[in-house]
Design a protein around this nucleic acid. Structure first.
Lengths: 141, 141
DNA sequence: CGCATATTCAACCACATGGTTGAATTACAA
DNA sequence: TTGTAATTCAACCATGTGGTTGAATATGCG
């Protein structure tokens, strides 16, 4: 019904791009929950919550065990690990240390591989960015 | 034009949920690129690519330096670090070692915090999931 | 100046998303 | 059997997304 032939990681990142769904994952990190339990904290219809759960399921982020008339959901961390590893590729860009060297190399690289002959002004040194950690901080997500 | 009052991490994950944009980030990991350079490998109009770039910019994943008539883009890793750290919260769920203990604790937890009295069947032990690493593997993304 | 280059803007389109409501399905319980 | 509880399904709606095309806006160049 959704994401017909997208790359798996597309569906994972997409699933994570919604605060309701991230909150559900957060909840599931503390233990399994039924559909109604997952829906309860969210100000929306059960049907809407059910759709969110299906998106999470479609991304492989949760598994569901049907138990009579209730559906028990539990976290399936594999895709989260995949996404984490995907991001790890870029780690060198935020863990500085070699930042100056990196940047010089990137400049050289850009110079070399530039398909045309644009760019010839100096680059601004990027302000080192502060990153607020931990999921589900404060109000939403 | 997009993401009017969403949580910042919403826009980051959303930006990452598209293969075209992930490929652009990949490209920018090797050095700065102009808009046309970023657009070139992708089978779409310049205008479409320009929109993708704006999504990345809106998520804070890239910065743009206007240089005459060309726009030079460069990677801004901060939000990637944020997303990475967000995912790190769930790390304990995929780095096993304490997996059995974790699971037992989660069961207890679920037992304790369950708002209703559902759940009373045994849990399946989750198959340890294999996660394919590194970004931009194979054909797309 | 006049033209080509780099990029965006605006209007448009098909389809996805996230929500609603009401009915259908299935299971438990009296 | 009858009713109620848990969940999905189907239809619908407003809005967002990702793409197109053609015009607009600057900038660089001869």
């Amino acid at each position: 019904m959704v994401e017909l032939q997208a790359h798996p990681i597309d569906t994972v990142f997409h699933a994570l791009s919604d605060g309701t769904r991230r909150r559900m994952l957060r909840e599931l990190a503390q233990g399994e929950r039924t559909v109604s339990q997952l829906a309860e904290p969210h100000d929306m219809s059960l049907a809407a919550a059910s759709k969110h759960i299906k998106v999470l399921e479609g991304a492989g982020l949760i598994r569901r065990e049907i138990q009579g008339r209730t559906h028990l959901c539990r976290l399936e961390p594999g895709p989260l690990a995949t996404a984490h590893e995907w991001l790890t590729f870029y780690e060198r860009f935020w863990t500085s240390r070699l930042d100056i060297l990196e940047r010089l190399l990137r400049e050289e690289d850009a110079q070399k591989s530039a398909r045309d002959e644009i760019r010839k002004s100096p680059l601004k040194s990027p302000a080192s960015r502060k990153s607020e950690t931990e999921p589900e901080t404060g109000e939403d997500q």
